[in-house]
Design a protein around this nucleic acid. Sequence first.
DNA 1: TTGAAAGCGCTAACAC
DNA 2: GTGTTAGCGCTTTCAA
Lengths: 347, 347
Amino acid sequence: MTLRTRRNSTSSSLHPKGAAPSIDDVAAHARVSIATVSRVLNARGKYSEETRQRVLQSVRTLDYSPSTAARSLARGRTHVIALVMPTINAAFLQPLLVAVVEAANRAGFDVLLTLRPIAKNHRPIGKHNVDGAIIFASSADQTEVRRLHAAGCPLVLMYDVPPIDLNLPCVLLENRHGARQMTEHLIKLGRKKIAFLRGTDGLEDSREREGGFRDALAAHGMVADQELIGAGEFNSDATFQTVTAWLERGLQFDAIFASDDDSASGALQALANAGISVPSSVAVVGFDDAPFAANLTPPLTTVRAMTGQVGSEAVRLLVNLIETGSSASQVRLPTELVIRRSCGSSL
Amino acid sequence: MTLRTRRNSTSSSLHPKGAAPSIDDVAAHARVSIATVSRVLNARGKYSEETRQRVLQSVRTLDYSPSTAARSLARGRTHVIALVMPTINAAFLQPLLVAVVEAANRAGFDVLLTLRPIAKNHRPIGKHNVDGAIIFASSADQTEVRRLHAAGCPLVLMYDVPPIDLNLPCVLLENRHGARQMTEHLIKLGRKKIAFLRGTDGLEDSREREGGFRDALAAHGMVADQELIGAGEFNSDATFQTVTAWLERGLQFDAIFASDDDSASGALQALANAGISVPSSVAVVGFDDAPFAANLTPPLTTVRAMTGQVGSEAVRLLVNLIETGSSASQVRLPTELVIRRSCGSSL
DNA sequence: TTGAAAGCGCTAACAC
DNA sequence: GTGTTAGCGCTTTCAA
């Protein structure tokens, strides 16, 4: 016979302000052991249907919900993944974030949002804190990635390749192909002098998109005019400056391929400012198909990047890694041209 | 004398794949008890400087980081707050989110991101899971808010007032004042027929902004034309439709006040589509000063809402509530006119 | 100033 | 099918 419950369940079941019911309360209320409550709640092991009903009923009446802390401690799993993002306002981050959270929730994981750079994270990402982490390109530095990986924390990269010696799963875009297609579309439309606005230095997306741009030119016997390869930084202010400067210097061009939609919007603005009409004088195209792209004036032709899928794929890879210990090493998501008005039709 | 450590610290300190060091390992390594390690790490109680150094050194060599699960369980606090957001793509959510996470981290809390609606949350927000929650207007329904509150979960609302009988702290904007000022600015500029694009039904922000708009008209002896009060839904597609319909019906107006910047962008597009020039024929203004507002064509005049501050205030209130059990009941953040080009200058 | 030990609320191995 | 119990890795009295 049970000598006594581990906790004074009389006072507990009274719910003295702030004391949430524990598994002991449920057990007492349902007149079973805590082991049985645990079994029912986790659908593990054996129990009679009648017991199940009683337990579930007690759970409902007490409005019991298990302590995740206790659960994590006992199971050695937190069912939380960290999402490490940069502190920037790029428009495509919102859909990405939504996709990650939804996919994670579907897979039974909560998402801890971490922003970098941060002075010092209150609680470092590490084993026993989260079950794994998804890292957005360049939001964590190599040192930290290595540390986490060395500590055995399952990691997945988004929009970036891992250091060659590291073999982390990552999800990427078909940047090169998309950029090449987009450039060829401009060429087909009759544009002869295409300017290019680079992305942020050091990012895989930047490299690959520029690569695709150059591929297309080369394939058509054109060469990139170095003067017309400008700073973009994935950011509208930077491109506004760049394009404005080009205009002031009197450079000639009939199209601008911006590395992302944010930069495209800055270019659009610089052009509008100078009274240059888009697309009749200059075509402008972007990359991503961010939420606002269709709302620009004129609506922006761009390369759709399936941002949401990047997020859900990352979650899939990570969950796989957590659950099975291994995972596909790289997935590349397709891109697709979205033709709107900013590129015009044939000249 | 200690009979034996609770765990085979020999194997532990070898870091057998995946076994993170525990407090026992640190204690063994530093030749002190786990109690002392705990004291040093939490800067609680007494210990000699020499002991402190030894412990800290062991922590470093073992790359130890405490298990949050164990800590939470022992302390009864998780140091995690939930952020409940809607699954929408409003542009101002991004800065809001960043602000919340940064403020929370500064205060020593991690942020669990929860999106609504969600089929069924894997782990319900509730006591012992998070220390409190910040709820974005309308992202959680009243039933859930009441349940959480009844369960003793500290709650703060953003952009919404609590049900009258509930007394939850909330952070709001000076919507009414801001909208009134904006409207008066349009009137001063000589606009006579000002259309209004409503926000989403049922939201406090919608009500208050419309209120401010009407206040201004009334103060100037003007009346709102019911035909020119249209659906906005805080969303560019809706306003695109609304404005397009107005145009097709031949309604006359010389200004549009959109309830937020997203809706303003839809209005801008509808106008551009119809070949109506902004601001010379129709002025367009918005609310929020979302990141893209300055990049629209023409740059959007709007009411700056200090979105980031809403987030950090919400965190401040919540942390206060968690720590002291009570908190200011309502804070209203000021707004400010941002005059750009979409409203034109005097007619 | 330090150590021993009793929880915190669960899960899971083992006994019945 | 159900109960007992030993942890999970911490914090925190209470002794020493």
